[in-house]
Simulated scan of single mutants.
Amino acid sequence: MSSNDDRIAQAERHFGVRFPEDYRHFLAAEGSMARFVPPAGDFLVINSLAELIEVNEAADFQERFPRSVVIGGDGSRELLTYDFRQEPPSLVLLDVSAEGWSSAIQQATSFSALLEQFPETGWKWDEPEPSPS
């Protein structure tokens, strides 16, 4: 196992989840991303492994959103978050000041789908999705 694989496994243990394979592959191969994405015209940030725990511990995010893992965002107030309350986990957008899951805006069913659609769609700003029961 490479040191990067070890760090991915440590992050998974910290959050008590197993990251989806496409996201694990991104972390191992790319590590992180922060760029303006044309033609959508939106900024996309995917945090590095070193940033994951710190970002998720900020503002009691884990307490407000149990079974969540913030993996990035728009470089400002919006946080790209895995919703591990369901299997497979989907990716949602949450404002840093959101109080609960009812504020989540569905972005993609997988990390690969997000990266594929993002250049065309950018961030989706639709009404929040209803919470799963």
Rank of each mutant, 00 (worst) to 15 (best):
P88Y: 07
F84S: 09
E54M: 12
F43P: 07
I53K: 01
D6A: 12
S112A: 15
I71S: 10
R18D: 13
E30N: 13
S68C: 07
G16S: 02
P39I: 01
P132F: 01
F65N: 09
R18M: 08
P66G: 08
L79T: 07
S3Y: 12
L52R: 02
D22I: 08
F15S: 01
P128K: 12
P39V: 04
R7G: 04
K124T: 15
D126Y: 09
D22K: 05
R85S: 04
P39F: 00
E87R: 03
Q107A: 00
E51T: 06
S90L: 10
G75V: 05
R7Q: 14
D74C: 02
R77T: 12
A40L: 07
N56M: 02
A28D: 08
E87D: 15
V92Y: 01
V70S: 13
Y23C: 06
E120W: 11
N4D: 12
E12F: 07
S131M: 15
A50W: 06
G31I: 09
W101Q: 05
E127Y: 14
A113G: 04
E12A: 00
Q86T: 14
V92A: 01
A40C: 12
E57T: 14
L94T: 11
V17T: 00
F26R: 04
Y82C: 03
Q117Y: 02
A40P: 08
F61H: 10
A29V: 14
P89C: 07
D83R: 07
Q106Y: 15
E116S: 13
P39D: 02
E21L: 12
I53R: 05
G100Y: 10
G41I: 06
R64M: 08
A40W: 05
A113F: 09
A104H: 04
S103V: 05
Y82W: 08
E57G: 15
T81K: 00
E120D: 14
I53V: 15
E21M: 02
D126R: 13
A104T: 05
L80Q: 11
P128E: 09
G72A: 02
A11H: 01
A34I: 03
P66H: 09
A11V: 01
W125D: 13
R85L: 02
L80K: 03
D60H: 15
H25L: 09
G31K: 04
P88N: 03
S102V: 02
L115I: 02
F15W: 00
W101G: 00
E54R: 14
S3V: 11
H25P: 10
F84V: 00
G16L: 04
S48Y: 11
Q107R: 11
F118H: 06
A104M: 09
A40D: 00
G75Q: 05
V37W: 06
Q86G: 13
G72C: 06
S112L: 11
E57Q: 15
S110Y: 04
P38N: 12
E21R: 10
E87C: 11
L91E: 05
R13F: 00
D42F: 11
V17H: 06
W123K: 08
L115N: 08
P38A: 08
S48D: 09
P132E: 02
I8R: 11
E30F: 05
D60F: 12
P66S: 11
E99W: 04
R24V: 02
R77V: 12
N56Q: 06
N47D: 10
E129A: 15
A29W: 12
R13G: 07
R24W: 09
F111I: 06
E127L: 13
S76E: 08
A108H: 06
V45Q: 01
A113E: 12
G73N: 10
